[in-house]
Design a protein around this nucleic acid. Structure first.
Lengths: 200, 200
DNA sequence: ACCTTTCTCTACCAAATGGTAGAGGAGAGA
DNA sequence: TCTCTCCTCTACCATTTGGTAGAGAAAGGT
């Protein structure tokens, strides 16, 4: 039966490192040797746990989707109505992005995947998206959010949050530096930005 | 002396195709063979015009920066004050993104470049950024735009526009389809979103 | 003690990739 | 016509990459 060689089972450590490197350098820009080398294990050990790069990619993507949806689900259920709920969700995503920057970086790799793979992933998120859209519509009807196309609005908020969380170069371009204080300020400004954009 | 084999000189055709593929599949995900094959030329022809992949990458990046800055500069000089100017700029960027989707996709590759290369590119944009920041500060003082940290605000607007223009998968996820009508609607919703976010 | 299962490794391999060397064609000037 | 320059090509090459084959260590059950 299983036992752990180091702090975590090999398969988990491989998955973590792969997620990290895929998210930072891109899938195409990361070789199996890179991953195995970082984990500190032979390439064949990696291929024992994940029989091909495609298999590893698949596992990384679904695991990432699960982790993100889990991080998002909690605050969405809690929190009150109107913008408070949006704010709670954004804070969760932002916290996840700070904790593991590669997660959202990986989300952006979706655009480079073949349609089959991305369709599969999108299906697993479909119900969450529909729930969010229905909720947005209700809030707009109730006058608690600005009236707009809820689906496009969702994409816009998504683009803003994920964009600002992943594009460190854009922040570096305006002279921003990643200190703890600046990170807090960034989150606050982003919340204010979205509050203004979403309230009626 | 030079003469053209087809519609455009070989070097230009290579540059165009390289920009396109780099922007769509990423730099690491695009081989010289891919580019040469798409152009319809031997790989060595490509290596004659651009002596290495790095040289080609450099040329693609600077050419893209020039094209984008040119597209942005015009409306920024014209147009009036307050949000009208922001709107004109966004429309230009959006138009450029629709005309050549790869341009903004390439901008996102910045995050994967080594610091030297991206520093060089950021330097060439520094003056434009500073001008924009100063202008934003003035408009905020004059009460024509919502008061906020102008640098972070710039990053947020950037993230929103570039994000929604490049992440087609996020739009596909909410059931949006890229027709001409939907594209117009998307632009309109984005403008309203940013208007709400930026006005006092 | 022995076998079986689980896990990791070394040793290869074929294809793809970035790059080199140099041949050859075609127009322009002498 | 000869030659020179410009441009594109075929023929290679070394390295990297995803992947295969199979040996060997370590532990558990019998």
């Amino acid at each position: 039966m299983g036992f752990m060689a180091q702090s975590a089972p090999t398969a988990d450590r491989i998955l973590t490192v792969a997620t990290d490197l895929f998210g930072r350098r891109g899938i195409a820009g990361t070789s199996l040797d890179d991953i195995a080398g970082t984990v500190g294990v032979a390439k064949q050990t990696l291929l024992y746990w994940y029989p091909s790069k495609d298999a590893l990619i698949g596992k990384v993507l679904t695991a990432t989707a699960v982790e993100l949806l889990y991080a998002i689900d909690k605050p969405v259920r809690g929190a009150g109505d109107g913008f408070a709920r949006v704010e709670a969700t954004i804070n969760s995503v932002f916290a996840a992005a700070v904790r593991r920057p590669s997660l959202l970086g990986l989300v952006r790799e979706l655009n480079r995947l073949d349609t089959n793979t991305s369709d599969q992933l999108l299906d697993s998120m479909r119900s969450h998206i529909d729930t969010a859209v229905v909720w947005l519509e209700g809030e707009m009807q109730a006058g608690r959010l600005r009236k707009a196309d809820p689906r496009i609005l969702l994409s816009l908020v998504y683009a803003t949050v994920v964009g600002v969380a992943t594009e460190t170069e854009a922040l570096r371009a305006v002279g921003w530096e990643p200190t703890v204080g600046n990170l807090r300020k960034l989150r606050r400004e982003m919340i204010e930005f979205l509050r203004a954009a979403l309230l009626p």
